[in-house]
């Protein structure tokens, strides 16, 4: 019962956040609405007893991606869009159709195949188990990802280096 109430509340938050994020023309508002969506999602993960995923959701999506988005937006013109002018695309019905199609084709079957609530085994959440999983079967994936991120980091540093000010010809001693 508790879980159910929590689920509906969190889902409502997530859906509302997502809707606002899509419809707001003010980019900053949009980003924050998106972050609300992430927060709702993180709550849902928590409800599934996937603590680590929930924490990572907050850490990565809200903490890192959100800030990244904000930084990116600060570089654009006209941050504060006109909220009064609603975004109404002419082809919105096609979008709806596409969404429905995605739902039916991709998601409907997995949802139907989910085990019923009674049959589901209560899982004991453990970070340790996750760690073992990461290190044992998925170690190559992890390493590749780490390498990729390192490459991105180095690339970012190099890109930043290129913008450095030219040294003065006669720097005073």
């Amino acid at each position: 019962m508790n879980e159910e109430i929590s689920f509906w509340i969190l889902s409502a938050i997530a859906v509302l956040g997502a809707l606002v994020a899509v419809r707001k023309r003010n980019l900053i508002h949009g980003v924050f609405a998106l972050l609300v969506f992430f927060a709702g999602l993180s709550g849902l993960f928590l409800l599934l007893l996937a603590e680590f995923i929930a924490a990572v959701q907050v850490l990565v999506y809200i903490g890192a991606v959100g800030v990244l988005l904000l930084f990116a937006i600060m570089l654009t013109e006209r941050v504060a869009g006109d909220d009064d002018r609603r975004m109404i695309s002419r082809g919105w019905s096609w979008g709806l159709l596409a969404a429905a199609a995605v739902f039916v084709v991709l998601l409907l079957r997995p949802i139907q195949q989910l085990p019923s609530q009674d049959a589901a085994q209560p899982i004991k959440p453990s970070v340790e188990a996750l760690g073992h999983k990461l290190i044992n079967p998925y170690v190559v994936t992890l390493e590749v990802l780490a390498l990729l991120l390192t490459a991105a980091l180095i690339g970012a540093v190099t890109a930043a280096q290129g913008l450095r000010m030219p040294k003065e010809e006669d720097s005073p001693e």
Binding site: F32, E51, F52, A55, V56, L59, V127
Partner: peptide, 22 residues
């Protein structure tokens, strides 16, 4: 007392950044 209290700690304190930016 969550299993991953420390990581939750960092995750949630990170939200301060957003408030300050806001």
């Amino acid at each position: 007392l969550l299993d991953g209290a420390v990581i939750f700690f960092f995750a949630i304190t990170g939200l301060n950044t957003l408030a300050v930016f806001m």
